[in-house]
Amino acid sequence: MAATGLTREQSFKAFDGYQYVYNHESETVGCKMKFGVYVPQKAEKEKVPLLIFLSGLTCTEQNFITKSGVQRLASKYGFIVANPDTSPRGCKIEGDSENWDFGEGAGYYVDATENPWSKNYRMFSYVNDEFYQLIIKNFNVDVNRIGIFGHSMGGHGALISYFKRPGQYKSVSAFAPITNPSKVEWGIKAFTKFFGQDELLWKQYDATELVASYHGPKTRAPILIDQGSDDNFRNKYLFPERLIDAAKKVSFPIECREHEGYDHSYYFIMTFIEDHFKYHKEEFEHIK
């Protein structure tokens, strides 16, 4: 189908479908944004489930589509898989490209409230409103079967999207997510700039805080989180046990699997990504 308001930059035949890269002018973040989308052959004839993948720090739209092996699985399971960039780019804000863990490539999937970031760094609204609707409008999506997952900063983004938008996503999973950003160096650095000193705002974008007050619909199976035991970020920035403990206190089901010997890389993701496809497929199959 023809894409409206999109410019196609790349098109690659992969398995029975196509891996595309598009750009568009975003009203939400005020710049041109790129994204990848894999469209299986099945989507040419019928509406199919959608998975949105959010990438981690320093990534563009390219990392996931070139390193994860997602195309084979999207073809096998008949899913459209869409992945946006991780931040606005080219906004020329002083300080947005000086460090790898903040600014360009590191938007943290939040809506900033402090100047000069609040005009462009609105990635939460971009992902969950503009990008979400853009994919539905332009591709053959079954709107009743949409899930979200991500890695590291993107795992954080997926979890907060699920908790902050009850019912919008029917399934959610994550690889090595930042679970408690308001309490770790990466998050504190970013949140101080994006939100100032208002720690109540910080908590509104923190999965460990959000799960404690979540009252929306729940996934049928526990939320799936995969974590590598040899991830050098695990005990300084990720802290999966904090999310698990908070979830247990409110009887929210989360399954965190720790995998011996795996690190934080895409080798870890490519090893276990099919488990995530199976997980989302099983969640979708129970939707009437």
Rank of each mutant, 00 (worst) to 15 (best):
G5M: 06
R8C: 15
Q10G: 01
K13N: 11
K32D: 13
M33N: 03
K45F: 07
K47D: 05
P49M: 01
I52Y: 02
L54A: 06
S55K: 03
G56M: 10
C59V: 03
K76A: 14
I80Q: 05
N83T: 15
N83E: 08
T86C: 15
S87L: 05
C91L: 09
C91T: 15
D96F: 10
G103E: 03
G105R: 04
Y109H: 06
W117H: 07
Y121P: 09
S125P: 08
S125H: 11
Q133A: 04
K137Y: 01
K137G: 01
D142P: 11
D142V: 04
F149A: 07
A158I: 03
A158W: 07
A158K: 04
L159E: 02
I160C: 05
I160T: 10
I160K: 07
S171M: 00
F191H: 06
T192C: 07
K203Y: 03
Q204N: 05
E209G: 00
V211R: 00
A212S: 14
A212L: 05
G216M: 01
I223T: 04
I223A: 07
L224E: 08
I225R: 04
G228H: 13
S229G: 07
N235L: 09
K236R: 09
E241S: 15
A246S: 07
S251H: 12
P253R: 05
H259E: 14
H264T: 15
H264D: 10
Y266C: 12
Y267V: 13
F272D: 14
H276S: 06
Y279Q: 01
H280R: 02
H286M: 09
K288H: 13
